[in-house]
């Protein structure tokens, strides 16, 4: 398999494979050696141009290791593990953020600048980078960003916090564990026969009698429509 082909296979694998890519293939010179395990998965319906674009994005790295470490800490503070569900890092949120800033470059400066800001703040207050200070001290900085005083609402820390929170939340709730936590039930073939009766009742709603007479009937819905009996 040549490199391009194998990369394609990886790219098509989506988020999971990005982990593999960022650790092994970001160095453009290193080819994938024979014997490397490459998981081939179905793509997600890309055109050739889109596929190539994904491939290019995967081959670049934006955040440094330190930055990724900070992103991971922040992600898990924003969405921690609890009894019901896993944490943001376990749901792959940092990898999603690494991808999305390459995909939507408008995120790059605010993210990088925000991470710089956090380190400066940490150095100022605790004389060490954010990743190195105690959990307690980290939380002090976070709380200042997350619950700013009114006059600070639009200063760099709070603005950055709102930005990264958006990315963490969206990354989490569009992941498989996020769907499980949200208890999302759709995206699967089914027969829609209206709002469940007990839910209707709970909301004090009722279906219109006239509509019920003509509404889609789950029993006959697969029979080809017969217009002979139809009057306009």
């Amino acid at each position: 398999m040549d490199r391009r082909e194998s990369l394609k296979a990886l790219v098509l694998g989506g988020v999971g494979s990005s982990l593999f890519l960022s650790s092994c293939v970001t160095d453009k010179k290193s080819p994938i050696a024979a014997g490397d395990i490459i998981e081939e998965r179905e793509g997600y319906g890309r055109t050739p141009a889109e596929e190539e674009r994904d491939e290019d994005l995967y081959s670049e790295t934006f955040f440094s290791e330190e930055e990724m470490a900070t992103i991971s800490i922040l992600s898990d503070i924003i969405i921690p593990e609890d009894e019901e569900s896993v944490s943001a890092t376990e749901a792959g949120v940092p990898e999603f953020i690494e991808f999305i800033v390459k995909d939507i470059p408008e995120h790059q400066i605010p993210m990088r600048g925000g991470l710089m800001w956090i380190n400066r703040e940490s150095n100022k207050r605790f004389e060490a980078a954010f990743n190195e200070i105690s959990k307690e001290n980290q939380m002090e900085i976070i709380d200042n960003m997350a619950y700013p005083r009114a006059f600070e609402e639009n200063s760099p820390g709070p603005v950055f916090f709102r930005n990264i929170r958006n990315l963490v939340v969206t990354g989490y709730f569009t992941s498989e564990p996020g769907f499980k936590y949200l208890d999302y039930r759709g995206n699967t073939p089914n027969v829609w026969d209206g709002v469940p009766a007990h839910v209707l009742e709970k909301h004090g709603m009722k279906y219109d009698e006239d509509l019920l007479k003509v509404a889609m009937d789950p029993v006959t819905r697969n029979e080809v429509m017969d217009w002979n009996k139809y009057e306009v």
Partner: peptide
Amino acid sequence: LPPPKPRL
């Protein structure tokens, strides 16, 4: 064709 019932 028959319409689907409304959502909540």
